[in-house]
Design a protein around this nucleic acid. Sequence first.
DNA 1: GGCCATGCTTGCAAAATGCAAGTGAACCGT
DNA 2: ACGGTTCACTTGCATTTTGCAAGCATGGCC
Lengths: 93, 93
Amino acid sequence: MSDLAAALDIVGARWALLIVERLLDGPQRYGDLQRDLGVPTNMLATRLRELEAAGVLIRLPLRHNTRAYALTDRGFALREAIVALGNWGRRDS
Amino acid sequence: MSDLAAALDIVGARWALLIVERLLDGPQRYGDLQRDLGVPTNMLATRLRELEAAGVLIRLPLRHNTRAYALTDRGFALREAIVALGNWGRRDS
DNA sequence: GGCCATGCTTGCAAAATGCAAGTGAACCGT
DNA sequence: ACGGTTCACTTGCATTTTGCAAGCATGGCC
């Protein structure tokens, strides 16, 4: 399995990279991600579980019954790839 | 829709980036892609159609009843993103 | 104790993906 | 010119993923 295939196994699923991109700006709560991205709630829950299991993000318990999701170092390491893909998506030619 | 979402709309489908990665080495024929990537034939046909429609690659007619698929400039512009994702996929930490 | 906000889970329909077999066109040797 | 082979797909159907909508659990507040 190639390096690219290994990466896509983790962040290739729908919504995964968009979630990570959102978290590059800092920790976010479940409801924030849901509203900002327009991702279905069950997909969001599933992806967050997978990305946590893959070591891309962690849960931070906040006060009350809320928590926040924050990138790990491994998660932040995706910034380069996300920026490159974003640049590509912005071009016309 | 963000730049990243626009990019994923084109190359976010399963196998799409792996196909493009393979074509970074130069034009390939259908059967080569199929064998090298292990992609189901109907998926390969579908992705090639979509990527051609998106301007990422073109068909080059060869002699006989064969043709090759080659990246356009827009396709080659994905190299940076693919390399970045590949590097990320290779790391352990 | 009733109400609300937050963070999910569940049930089910729709779409994407995968597998295996089949199709059609072009060439190749005889 | 005919049959066999290769190549590039298409087709039918099972499985998996995704999406939508509704429901559930916990904690705080009044």
